[in-house]
Design a binder for these strands. Structure first.
Lengths: 205, 205
DNA sequence: GGCCTTCAATAACACTGTTCCGATACGCTG
DNA sequence: CAGCGTATCGGAACAGTGTTATTGAAGGCC
């Protein structure tokens, strides 16, 4: 009968913000509830009131990451040329990952051990890949791409960008490596591989 | 002086074995030194004598993983046909990952928070990708592949397989998805994208 | 045989996420 | 406006973690 939940929204944002900073600075391992609460001038219990648990707090970071990511993907200008559009979308993917590398780890690499995204968060995540599917479906319908299952092509494209980005972020790429150039070339080669007839092929460099 | 170091090799193997089992069963989070030592009938201090620290123990798992992985890669029969060989190598990569998914997480996805492979381990890891580079260099030299930097193509191929496998292992793939078939098709499409002239293209399904 | 080094078990330290308890502060009802 | 009731949060405690200081035991070399 009394006092409906009036969670302190300012504190909530402050905690999320600081949590992102802590992870960005020293990795997911460095995100401690005591440090987080101390920095925000509150106590660990507040985190439990506002989020429920540490994984739930990470879940909030996860959805925030996909919100930004989805915005970048949806906001990428498209030309109607399938290969070029896939390259553009892939570049937006990388840009987003490099802008918030710590969020990327949470979103795609399970970098926080105990964490699993909940139903809603996972659904939001899947939504963000819709532009990719749209391009591919149209390219198949127009006879530009091979008549393979759209999911197959979509997953293949996703794999290239995810693979490249995660290799880059984990420092697995060789030194003195032209990341940006190679990235575009690899994307273009991969997309060209799905063309029904390879008209002009690709032209790296 | 007295008593040269005679680290108990049997205990060392037992600990490594059990550590792998613990991670395989309940994820990297479940690898606790107390539980590990208890299961092996010893004490946590033994781990420090034998390995130095927990990350060092994980490092031993890391190198073991790359030993097995490297053996599979090097043992893959090749035909001399670049695209087919890249598909074969990619399939071996996936087979290896599915055989030891927990090791794969340690090797490529930084699934254990505080862990960074040391110099030797990282060098061993790079060695295992040599077969990939060999195929690509020859395909370029023979004029089969486009004249792009070999590293670019190699990283692109690596990215596809790594991306597909890590998406599969983290459960990010849609349900009712023909993983094996799509995997091969995606590999073939990606490799074909680097062909100088796309003779026959690819033919999924 | 006695020294000396290496090994490992016990226990402690400093941390972690989480929960219990209690006090506070707030919004609704009378 | 008084007062009840509950949502919220601070402090302390609990169970767990990796790591380390201390200490005792075990084995090879002089």
């Amino acid at each position: 009968m009394a006092r409906p939940r009036t969670h302190d929204e300012a504190l909530r944002l402050k905690l999320l913000d600081r949590a992102g900073e802590l992870i960005a600075a020293d990795g997911p391992k460095a995100l401690s509830l005591r440090k987080l609460a101390g920095d925000a001038g509150t106590s660990t219990t507040a985190v439990y009131s506002l989020f429920g648990s540490k994984p739930d707090l990470v879940n909030a970071l996860y959805t925030e990451g996909f919100r930004r990511f989805g915005a970048r993907m949806a906001g990428t200008p498209l030309t109607g040329h399938a290969v070029e559009d896939l390259v553009a979308l892939g570049s937006a993917y990388r840009t987003s990952a490099l802008a918030d590398p710590h969020l990327y780890g949470i979103m795609f690499s399970r970098s926080v051990p105990g964490f699993e995204p909940n139903e809603d968060a996972e659904k939001l995540a899947r939504e963000t890949l819709k532009p990719l599917e749209r391009i591919i479906r149209r390219a198949i319908a127009d006879g530009v791409f091979l008549d393979a299952p759209p999911e197959t092509i979509a997953v293949g494209c996703w794999a290239v960008v995810h693979g490249l980005v995660s290799l880059e972020l984990t420092g697995n790429l060789p030194e003195e490596f032209d990341v940006t150039g190679s990235y575009e070339a690899a994307l273009r080669a991969n997309a060209s591989g799905w063309l029904r007839r390879q008209t002009s092929g690709n032209d790296p460099l």
